[in-house]
């Protein structure tokens, strides 16, 4: 009995100390993590919209650039980001999307030109895919493929496809990642859903 009591006390103290250490660490790193997250969010939106900024800029500077150039607007449950490129007449738009990846949620941003068909940029900024395989969705070569593609085919049918051995000349096909078929399928669905939502939102707004 005495032994059990000691064991309980020991477990409680050890657990308490560990919890205390973790809380302290979490408190200490909290502001840095938040700043990282904010800077990254802003950086993602700026890059996908193609807003010019200094790549070495600090997180605070990025937030300034963001506030000066980008207009936020909620449309239904979507958050839209508008930006007017210098010399451009119409605004380009970016929208956040998210969905299930292979191992966990994937979050990203899709930016469309003012024609609302041509992709200006795509970025997957948060995912838990396998590093080196599905994780490649956040690499430049993969995301870069989307630029200039359209979310409809030449006949006007909606859909963007991520395929093995994609036809480079097709306006709505990009290459899939070797070894990450499941991830690619899932993000393909995600992108198409996002496009559908944008179209739906525009129809409802009578645009």
């Amino acid at each position: 009995m005495k032994g059990s009591f000691y064991t309980l006390c020991y477990a409680a103290v050890l657990g308490g100390v560990c919890a205390l250490l973790l809380t302290a660490t979490s408190n200490f790193t909290g502001p840095y993590k938040q700043a990282n997250a904010k800077a990254e969010e802003v950086l993602n939106i700026l890059s996908v919209l193609g807003v010019p900024f200094d790549v070495d800029a600090s997180g605070e500077r990025l937030v300034e650039v963001f506030n000066a150039n980008v207009r936020e607007k909620s449309q239904g449950d979507m958050k839209l980001y508008f930006y007017r490129p210098s010399g451009g007449k119409a605004e380009v738009v970016a929208v956040e999307f998210s969905g299930a990846g292979l191992w966990g949620p994937v979050k990203g941003l899709l930016s469309l030109e003012s024609d609302m068909k041509t992709i200006r940029g795509v970025t997957f900024y948060e995912h838990e895919e396998t590093p080196g395989l599905g994780g490649e969705i956040s690499s430049d070569w993969f995301q870069g493929q989307f630029v200039g593609k359209t979310v409809v085919d030449d006949a006007g049918k909606a859909g963007i496809f991520i395929k093995r051995g994609a036809d480079k000349s097709a306006s709505n096909e990009v290459d899939a990642i070797t070894g990450a078929t499941m991830t690619c399928d899932k993000i393909e669905t995600m992108l198409n859903k996002t496009v559908a939502r944008i179209v739906k939102g525009r129809v409802e707004n009578g645009q």
Partner: peptide
Amino acid sequence: KAFYWDMSKQLGPY
């Protein structure tokens, strides 16, 4: 996560 954000994302759950 606080000081080496990119690497943290690369390593994911490992």
